[in-house]
Nucleic acid binder design. Structure first.
Lengths: 336, 336
DNA sequence: TCGCCTTATGTTAGCGCTAACATGGAACAA
DNA sequence: TTGTTCCATGTTAGCGCTAACATAAGGCGA
């Protein structure tokens, strides 16, 4: 109802007021209004006050679209993630926003849903808005995406991995070594038959490769690999599909917790420490939830928000180190 | 290293190519190129092929900033949420993105961090990019924010609540009634001393009010209310601060799970059904995690993604019902 | 054959703003 | 006095694109 009758007390009736309307009302030229908005120190206090009054009277909201075109600066950053829901990438988006928003940058968010074609479309859509940088999880899935980014001539930050040939900058950790660390730990714990559950996206696959290679190097049998789709439900039923397995590395904590839920139903979950567990479980991500469940979840801790903040920093400074390894940490709790 | 030496094979050396450069190369006028991009059916097949070739040769990426200024359409939507990390609002953002991205809209994301001043700043920043609609969680915290939105003359969708005097459109549920439903259930279960834990944001407070009113109406003692900050850690310790309480409604599932973790440490968590629990726990949000833990979490189920999709629909169609109550559901599992 | 419609393409002006370069006056040292 | 410098403000042109209105060339019925 009130949507049809906007507040006329302060706002104007028709289209949004422009710089020059403010200028006319304040009796100055448009450039002076522009300066009041962007570099108020260059304007005499009385003039400034007059302009500010006019802006208030008219309810002026600067048009950054026009400003961006004129100045060739959009003050925006494109962010591409596989998904934001139920996911650890949300921390990364939060981290980079917290760094960029106070500097006047807006975040243009796009989701690829782990789909290469959609990723390319989103990349093209982002670039057509002329962001001053692109931050993405992982690397472009296609040659076309890679080419688009290379030609864009803006800072590009790939995150959550350490690609061998990055387009520009990198903020991540070594997924292969994460897999190695988990396998090494499980072998040292005396586990004999390892398994890996999770997706087959590039980062998950790298974790798997490190895990498998290290298991083999430790003299264990080749681990089993169960590829699950994105619904956690699969992980709950995973135990039945992994007979004889006494240790599981899940590609992320959500899968790990789902798997543990399956173990619980099957009666093979103990309240005691890792050594008491018939099946060890290690996750990745270090969700807060992992510390709240019982047994508490052992995990590879990764700082998603630090990745985001670091990526933001890399978009702002063009010089300096362009490859930041934020590392990971094997956090041992009761599950394995 | 390679960041300094971009791929010149396909891309041009200098600035990004413009429409008119493509036009020159294809031997047509700029408007024809513009048509090939936006309304290809209006261009003869041979001309179109020539233009498309020229675009490929030059690596042309349309400049939507200029297009938006000329056409007064930005094809973008501003989205304001308190926070995206570890939160149920991520589902809403996902839902609305899934609906809007295929239609060519970009999502400009901003976070208020439950801070009124920051919310106003973000609102102003969003509006200066001339989005074609604003979708936000809740309602503006200040009169200033409200005024800004009213004057913007674009669809505004408030979500996750059903405000009495919305600015324009609404997609949410009745938080007060959610509190009522929980209190009613707990009273029927024979619980005597209720408590509420969670934040004091507007929506959390409305849940509290419904919960309290219903408890009193059922003849129970006034429930206790424990206001926690945004860190879940507080909820783990909450039990010690609520002596004598036999039922807890947590403002969200994260708090509920944290609280249950505290109960577990205190030895007052049973494996059996709700009736066996010394302290009943009900959450809100229906995180997937709630079904994976033990005992499984009873909760008010809310469809965050449906809220997002509905909000997206409301931004696209200006007519029709502007107030959509998506409801909620009390899902009873083992925790209470 | 002529006018009229259709289809394909072009011309012109301008979206709202800012970069870059004036301009004009006050302050000030020599 | 006469530059020289600084400060406050203005003028001009144009960012890259699209809306709106031409224009030109065929097709076609009468």
């Amino acid at each position: 109802m009130s949507s049809e009758l906007p507040d006329l007390a302060t706002g104007p009736a028709g289209a949004a007021p422009t710089l020059s309307e403010v200028a006319k009302r304040a009796g100055v030229s448009s450039i002076t209004v522009s300066r009041v908005v962007r570099m108020p120190d260059l304007v005499a206090p009385e003039t400034r006050a007059r302009v500010e009054q006019a802006m208030r009277d008219l309810g002026y909201v600067p048009n950054l679209v026009a400003g961006a075109l004129a100045s060739a600066r959009t003050n925006s950053v494109g962010v591409l993630v596989p998904t934001i829901a139920n996911s650890i990438f949300a921390d990364t988006v939060q981290g980079l926003s917290d760094k960029l928003e106070p500097l006047g940058f807006s975040v243009i968010l796009a989701q690829s849903r782990y789909d290469a074609a959609r990723e390319d479309r989103m990349l093209a859509a982002l670039l057509s808005r002329r962001p001053e940088a692109i931050i993405m999880v992982g690397s472009p899935a296609t040659e076309e995406g890679s080419r688009l980014l290379r030609n864009a001539r803006i800072p590009i930050v790939e995150t959550w991995d350490l690609p061998a040939n990055p387009i520009d900058a990198v903020a991540g950790f070594d997924n292969y070594q994460a897999g190695v660390a988990v396998a090494k730990h499980l072998a040292a714990q005396g586990r004999k038959q390892l398994a890996f559950i999770g997706g087959d996206d590039p980062r998950g696959t790298r974790r798997w490769l490190g895990y498998r290679d290290e298991a083999l190097a430790s003299g264990l049998a080749e681990p089993r690999r169960l590829i699950l789709d994105r619904k956690d439900s699969g992980s709950v039923a995973a135990h039945a599909r992994l007979p004889g397995v006494d240790a599981v590395f899940a590609a992320n904590d959500a899968h790990a917790i789902g798997f543990m839920s399956g173990l619980r139903k099957a009666g093979v979950l103990r309240e005691g420490p890792a050594s008491a567990q018939p099946v060890a479980v290690i996750g990745l991500g270090d969700l807060e939830m992992g510390q709240l469940i019982s047994p508490t979840l052992s995990t590879i801790s990764v700082h998603g928000d630090a990745i985001g903040r670091t990526a933001a920093t890399l978009t702002l400074e063009r010089g300096g180190e362009r490859r930041i390894d934020l590392g990971f940490e094997l956090v041992l709790r009761d599950s394995g």
